[in-house]
């Protein structure tokens, strides 16, 4: 979890730096009176790296991935809930001794 946050912050910082570098590049172009077509290659690479890091952090930080397979332990159904809406009370439990000191103190 900790490494995810670090990677996220790093990705954000890289994206911010790429934005700053682009602004600087445009300022230089204004001085040299050249036409802006696209950011330089190093900024593009920086953007891609920042995107990858941010995406990785976004997926890793919130929680662990759950399996979509029906037979994995978190999805494998082992029993159905007791049908409590149709529950009846005249069962063998009546004959069992119950804990007499269980009382509701009001």
């Amino acid at each position: 979890m900790g490494i995810g946050y670090v990677v996220g912050v790093l990705g954000g910082a890289i994206l911010a730096h790429a934005a700053y570098a682009t602004i600087q590049y445009r300022a230089v172009l204004k001085i040299t009176e050249e036409e802006f077509s696209r950011p330089p290659m190093d900024v593009m690479m920086e953007l891609l790296l920042g995107l990858v890091l941010c995406m990785w952090a976004g997926l890793a930080v919130p929680t662990k991935f759950l399996s979509v397979l029906p037979h994995s332990d978190e999805n494998r159904i082992v029993s159905l809930p007791a049908n409590l809406d149709f529950m009846i009370f005249n069962h063998r439990g009546r004959a069992l001794p119950s804990d007499s000191d269980l009382k509701l103190h009001t």
């Binding site: 332990d73 978190e74 999805n75 494998r76 159904i77 082992v78 029993s79 159905l80 809930p81 809406d85």
Partner: peptide, 14 residues
């Protein structure tokens, strides 16, 4: 119409 009760998974049971 009643909501479907979630069936118990191995993880839930444990």
């Amino acid at each position: 119409v009643a909501a479907v009760a979630a069936a118990t998974t191995a993880e839930d049971e444990a």
